[in-house]
Nucleic acid binder design. Structure first.
Lengths: 150, 150
DNA sequence: ATACAATTTGTAATGATTACAAATCCAGAG
DNA sequence: CTCTGGATTTGTAATCATTACAAATTGTAT
């Protein structure tokens, strides 16, 4: 989480990434938005701040960030990739009712060991689908467009 | 696993699905192939048996099977979906060296409980990426085209 | 100011998936 | 056995995320 306006710049510098305006702005957005945004969502969100922004820049910048461990790319469901500014490995919960993606703090025994059945683990991807706590308390909830055909 | 030639037909009947020739053949292929095949792989594999097969049929049939719990659809990595004839929830391991997808038998405490942090779990998706046991024993291994740009 | 390299941008492929309508198949009625 | 309606299958044409690629822009060192 960024605590001061200069945070993004400094983070980039410590990772050896030249802190251009778009990179700082994009990084700040991913770190601040805790919604695991898609490219499209980021694009819409950032356009006011970077009027010349192109989607290609978003793709390449986020790939750069991911390769340096600044963000992680989520493949929850097929369809669009999502980006998580909290790069440490953790699980997610996708609510089929409201579409929210919730961070989970689950201990994974296999992950701690670093291997399963002799296979060396480098990345962990775990998520659950279901109905989140909030949506369970409502009898009638609206189904997001994205999931309505499921 | 199908033990006799009539297995596929009977499985379909018990699920209330009309056992057409293509459905039986497709189901048999998914149950027998333990490689978590993609649509493309299944298409190539099935063409000799179903010369008129179209990809649309594969997509719709596999979606039908998935909706009835006969197979599960894997979203490992973005890119192509994969289909698993072993429908019971389980984890997978994707080897970055040889590209193999290996079934794992891992106990998931959260899954057993049926909920996490109050969110009701309906589906579990868990997979690891790394280097499988076999590939670790070889110093030099070939990187599959699919993953070579990673 | 100048030139070079990195970065950003826009446009055009690529490739998986879906939409849709025509063709085909199949079971039941007559 | 033939006919008919609905389900299934098929082929073609969209759709949509992502990638490739080259031109435009930026920033920096000289």
């Amino acid at each position: 989480m960024i605590t001061n306006p200069e945070g993004a710049r400094e983070i980039l510098l410590t990772r050896g990434i030249k802190p251009t305006y778009q990179r700082q702005t994009i990084l700040r957005a991913v770190l601040e938005k805790r919604t695991h945004p898609t490219i499209k969502a980021l694009y819409d969100h950032l356009l006011p701040a970077i009027p010349t922004l192109s989607k290609t820049t978003l793709y390449s910048t986020l790939e750069l960030f991911a390769s340096r461990g600044l963000v992680s790319r989520l493949s929850i469901d097929s369809g669009e990739a999502r980006y998580d500014g909290f790069a440490a490995p953790h699980h997610h919960f996708l609510c089929e009712a409201c579409g929210a993606i919730i961070d989970l703090d689950i201990a994974c025994p296999a992950a701690r060991r670093g291997q399963v059945d002799g296979h060396k683990i480098k990345e962990i991807h775990g998520y659950f689908k279901g109905v989140c706590k909030d949506c369970q308390s409502h009898v009638q909830y609206k189904i997001p467009r994205r999931l309505s055909h499921a």
